[in-house]
Design a protein around this nucleic acid. Sequence first.
DNA 1: CTTGACCCTAAAGTACACTATAGGGTTTAT
DNA 2: ATAAACCCTATAGTGTACTTTAGGGTCAAG
Lengths: 152, 152
Amino acid sequence: MDKLLKIGEVAKQANITVETLRFYQSEQLLIPKMSNQSGYRLYSVQDQQKLNFILHSKKVGFSLSEIKQLLSLRTDKDQHTCEEVKNYTGDKIDEIESKIHDLQKMSLALSNLHNACCGGSESAKQCTILNSLDDPELFANSNNKTLGKNHD
Amino acid sequence: MDKLLKIGEVAKQANITVETLRFYQSEQLLIPKMSNQSGYRLYSVQDQQKLNFILHSKKVGFSLSEIKQLLSLRTDKDQHTCEEVKNYTGDKIDEIESKIHDLQKMSLALSNLHNACCGGSESAKQCTILNSLDDPELFANSNNKTLGKNHD
DNA sequence: CTTGACCCTAAAGTACACTATAGGGTTTAT
DNA sequence: ATAAACCCTATAGTGTACTTTAGGGTCAAG
Ligand SMILES: [Zn+2]
Ligand SMILES: [Zn+2]
Ligand SMILES: [Zn+2]
Ligand SMILES: [Zn+2]
């Protein structure tokens, strides 16, 4: 019933290498059970969910040691007080909200560039609308200026 | 009129070290003008905005080489066609939206933990509500389960 | 019963993003 | 005019997160 996958199958599904999975084990991030007749690693569905969390967290800029702490909130509850859990999660939530905010600004700035550009095969140097936003949009603290379309 | 700051002042404002700024120059990411009487680096307001963009982009998981490409959209327009610009920005926007999505899931999962935990000084092992969410919330593909409050 | 695809450990090597060190010039304030 | 506080270059070293190498076991298919 509890489907266990071997390292190669997990790696393939997650689009990472088996070496990365062994590395995560050596770092105590994701510890599968080991088959005691073959010595092979066997990953449960929960292990695969955990791996998903690791990969998504990495993508948005968390380090492996931060991810380890996040995972330990669930796994090592008895090592923390409720106060610690509450403070830590509160701080992380703030951090995440700030990342979301930064990403929304970047998305807006790039959308302005994207919408302004005609997408044709000529040099973007000629793209006057692209030229017209020559100071701010891509940078932080940008304002929400909307632009028209097309060249010249 | 154009206020130029020395490296130490810029570093202090951005809360990074002068070595990092010199490193960014060596990587062609942020190239200030050099005073030709003292040989000191002089950073313009635009340079500082650029630095802001670099720092915010880094925070959300972009590598220095990705950031360099993003910056080059504005700086080296003549080296790209409109088509390239449009495709590149389109792809980056998708990537950013996906990061936002992941962060929103993490935020929700951590908020559930945060709201469930009483914040008291006892071991979180005792925190039955924290115990009750013992499989999914923190992990990817989580669903939006809302929890009550308090211990026992 | 062997061959190929897969798995194992241990240890060395690599890419990225800094960080520190050595040796020296510039500015500013007393 | 001299000393603290700042700046410079060049180069070596560090931490993180893998990646590769070397030398073997395991397992399903033919
Ligand atoms: Zn264009
Ligand atoms: Zn165009
Ligand atoms: Zn609690
Ligand atoms: Zn509690």
